[in-house]
Amino acid sequence: MRFKDVFSIIGPGMIGPSSSHTAGAVRLGRVARGLFGEEPKRAEIVFYGSLAATYSGHGTDLAVIAGLLAFDTDDERIPESLELAELAGMKIDFQTSSVPAVHPNTLTIKLSSGSRRSQMTGCSIGGGNIEVIEVNGFDLKFTANYPALIVYHVDRPGVLASLTRLLSDAGVNIGYMDVDRRARLGQAATVIEMDGAIPEKLLSEIKKLTHVKSLNYIDMNGGGPHCDSAL
């Protein structure tokens, strides 16, 4: 990975011993909550690689739950996150896996409330930075450093052209895009990271596009999440 500035190496302001095992884990938890759209009633976290061996001692468990509670990396409540989650009625299950992962600091977060389900896998790649690599069964990569839009749609000609045209007409600049599909002409998902936030009206227009089923929108810089999918 190429670090863009010195703060990418030093890491953000944080509570905890490690930017990789703590600050990055908080951000992964916050992204997972944003994609889910609300505070979950149940959370299952699976740790891989070095996190599987050290998550308790390095406070990664506390950090992930803090993110699910929408805490920031420097929130002084992080050490009490498990107790606060319990008080909020959240059921938590920590697991470890010996399955090889793409990065030593990889975890999967599975969230649910009633019939609503969501799953995300991501990596803490250093300096508090993260990379999401899977969302709800689709291999989608993004960093959450910028506002991110995930559109679930049917794989048909013209879907992406219609989507990007709407963004372009609204003056939204696309910085990054990734697409995955489960089968040719089957279910697909597209993630787009943009240079700026997008308004609710534009999200509504995107949802009306032919072959679009649902979407997630997450802005870690303060724009808040939007979620209309129950996967």
Rank of each mutant, 00 (worst) to 15 (best):
D219G: 08
L215R: 00
S56P: 01
A188E: 03
D219K: 06
L231G: 08
M220N: 09
K208I: 12
I192G: 01
G89H: 11
V46D: 03
L163W: 00
G57T: 13
G224F: 08
I15C: 10
L215M: 14
V132K: 00
F94G: 02
L68R: 03
D75K: 05
L87C: 10
T96P: 08
F7V: 07
L68C: 11
I92A: 06
N105F: 14
L35C: 12
S204Y: 01
Y217K: 02
L231V: 09
Y55Q: 01
A101I: 12
P199T: 10
N136V: 08
S162K: 09
K213Y: 07
A189L: 10
I130R: 03
G89R: 08
S204H: 08
L140D: 00
S113C: 10
F94M: 02
G186Y: 07
K207S: 12
I109W: 02
I198R: 03
R182G: 13
G67P: 00
G29L: 02
V151E: 01
P199C: 10
Q187T: 08
E38D: 10
D61M: 04
E44K: 11
F94I: 04
A144T: 07
S112Y: 07
S112A: 14
S229V: 07
S112E: 14
D155F: 04
V26M: 09
F138K: 03
S56D: 09
D93N: 08
P12F: 09
A66M: 00
P157D: 13
G171I: 04
A23V: 05
A43H: 01
E131I: 12
T210Y: 00
S81W: 01
G24P: 06
E200D: 15
R181P: 02
R181F: 14
K110E: 14
H211I: 00
I92K: 06
Y217P: 03
S97G: 13
G186K: 07
I174Q: 02
T143P: 05
R2G: 13
G11I: 07
K201H: 10
L209R: 06
A161T: 13
V179C: 03
L163Y: 02
V132A: 05
A53L: 06
H211Q: 10
I10W: 14
E76S: 09
A188M: 05
R117E: 15
D75Q: 08
M1V: 13
G57R: 11
V135I: 15
K141Q: 14
N129A: 11
R117F: 14
E38L: 12
E200P: 01
L84D: 05
C123E: 15
P12V: 08
P79G: 07
K141L: 11
M1Q: 14
F36S: 01
I125N: 06
V99A: 11
S118M: 15
G196H: 14
G137E: 14
A32K: 00
G223R: 01
S112K: 09
K41T: 05
L166D: 07
G127T: 15
P225Y: 02
N173H: 05
I92Y: 05
I192S: 03
T143D: 13
A188L: 04
N105Q: 10
R184I: 12
L51E: 00
E86I: 05
V191A: 04
Y152A: 06
C123H: 10
A170S: 14
P17M: 05
N173T: 12
G122I: 06
